[in-house]
Nucleic acid binder design. Structure first.
Lengths: 203, 203, 203, 203
DNA sequence: AATTAATCGAGACGGTACGTCGGGTCTTATG
DNA sequence: CATAAGACCCGACGTACCGTCTCGATTAATT
């Protein structure tokens, strides 16, 4: 999500082990995927990463921080595709968002955002980061659409983005367990209906 | 959400303490509100409710169940209002949803749904219950709209509901900490834009 | 060493498990005997006693306290025997002290006393308890000796006790590992020489 | 205790830092004095000595070795004084032993011996070293006494030494905390009684 | 002068134990 | 019977220390 790696290295002691960060992230996300938050254990993460617990705690202060960082580091971007038409672009984006949210890591990102938004003190700037993540995909498409003339100047872009993203969230929220394994055709169908709707409205 | 209290109580022994259920719910939600999920403990709930742990476990089998029940019992319903027009009804509903999600308990409902949807084994039937909760409000409005003739027969009602609810979620997701204190005017303005959009679309 | 068990039991909750204290002491002393202080682990003690760690920590605040208590509870008394003569009594007492100190638990008592005497803040009243333990055996013998007329009135009893006990400590201090397995004859011989000396002196 | 410094140093690399050994010993004994064995930490010793941990581990293989070496290096010798009479020599020796054991470092020597004697595998040859230390002082006095004719040929020298040393240990064992600050007069008085006793016995 | 080799400080490493805390169960005495 | 109190077993938490290791920087003796 961001490059935490600073520039210069002046460190005096033994340098931090090279691949540790990556291996710990992998281990954390595997554990999280297999056991969920309740069964997510620092000991297990350290063991699976082949690393001492102190190595983990040297980098992240607690369980929350580690999972947040892991999810932040690994959660993909919702990529936009240039299909040549505004409608096509929207369908592509919504489809990618669907796939993103049906993946445990992507869903975890949402879960953490929801936690963060409700928490007394903001959990890092996680919410902002996720918001940014969501809007960056859409804005590219809007720019392209405007350039092509597919998109009227008075369209409420924010509303469109909120509706499209939100509707996908609503639909994935209604799926749990095995029903979350949607085929590409299912996704395409759902996306088509949604994009239809946001383009035409209920009028 | 549902009537948890069973039917008759012919019990032979000491009757269940009168206000216990309520006091435990209150305690649970206060604890949850103050400390979040991570700091939410059964011990603290029992202590705050002035109740033994066994009394709690006699009624709910575990932490999840208690929190789910508490949230279910206390989370208001997203009420619909009959304003006389379909557009007015939608604005009323969306406004209520806004207020619901900006309240800690309402937000907790969402948080739990998100957890439940992603969990390996479904967390009770919480997901279904929430889905039901969301759709019941909308369906009343649709029925009224259809009766009034405000609503064409070929409108994708599900898409409309998903977009409207989803967009509200997206917007509240972008608010954290103090920015979650929205005035009624703010809400009304956001709602107006949203309803405008879902009624007309981007076409 | 002392009866820690209070008088009445008014306790309201679940009563403390019956044999736990005993089993924990046994486990602690076995672990201590097998692995020494360095290898003495609370986890291992709890496991060996078939008890949760919290059960241990509910009773003793830390490792030191547990070992101290265990040693205090189990370390036998240096018994005195009535042989009919003052010399015989002294030999019996010194022999028992020898056996006591050659036993791992008895030696641990000494080890802890030494720690306690040197510690910044006194380790409980362990030092006093041990002092008391040592003097009680001797005083009985002195009383008996005086009654029999074996013991002149101007004898420095404290000096005698210190010399006898101290000499036995010095001798066991010089033994380590396998050489600590002394036969009864060895002990008797050493004791005879010692008692001879304290009765006659170097004059 | 012994000269740890080897003979010639032709070493090719960077020579060992000059005062390091001394500063580490000081730091070790201060830490040990302040916190006792339980709170005695290699990290703290290194920090206090202003030295890297590797510098410590380059010289001693582990915590035991360091403390043993430090105590061995710093613990004074129980010096004997030639007072002209056997009795006077004994009193001088016992007084010095008293002072030695009331000093934290001297007492640590005893503590380590006690640990060593009870340990499964002997802690270095510490026990032997201490035994040697104790007997060397006495043997000089005995030799002098024999030369002067103060000392009969049939006296059990070992018993005498064991009693004298042992009695002093017993007395210091009974003192903890502030009561360990004995004035020279107190010591002289105690010593007089003890020497009286070992010279005349209880007969 | 360049090379070599030992040591230094700092501090991260994999482990392991600490003492704490919470979950969910169980056992008592008291309603 | 239900309750409150609270001890039970279990296992994870986050911390601290052990003894090892890997750095870059010194510091001589040897080339």
């Amino acid at each position: 999500m961001a490059s935490p790696e600073p520039l210069a290295r002046k460190a005096r002691g033994r340098p931090r082990k090279a691949g540790a960060e990556e291996r710990i992230f992998d281990a954390a996300l595997e554990e999280y995927g297999e056991r969920g938050w309740a069964g997510f254990t620092m000991d297990a993460v350290a063991r699976r990463a082949g690393v001492g617990k102190s190595t983990v705690y040297l980098r992240w202060q607690d369980k929350d921080s580690l999972l947040t960082a892991a999810v932040g580091a690994r959660s993909g971007v919702i990529e936009d595709v240039d299909t040549g038409s505004f409608r096509g672009d929207l369908e592509g984006l919504a489809g990618n968002l669907f796939r993103y949210l049906l993946d445990p890591i992507g869903w975890a990102t949402l879960r953490i955002s929801v936690d963060a938004a409700g928490a007394p003190e903001p959990l890092g700037r996680f919410t902002d980061a996720v918001t940014e993540l969501h809007h960056s995909g859409a804005s590219v498409i809007f720019a392209r659409g405007a350039a092509r003339g597919d998109l009227g100047p008075d369209v409420r872009k924010d509303a469109l983005a909120d509706c499209l993203y939100g509707a996908v969230i609503m639909q994935t929220l209604g799926l749990s367990g095995d029903s979350r394994r949607l085929s590409d055709e299912d996704i395409a169908e759902r996306v088509r209906v949604l994009v239809d709707f946001v383009l035409c409205g209920a009028g």
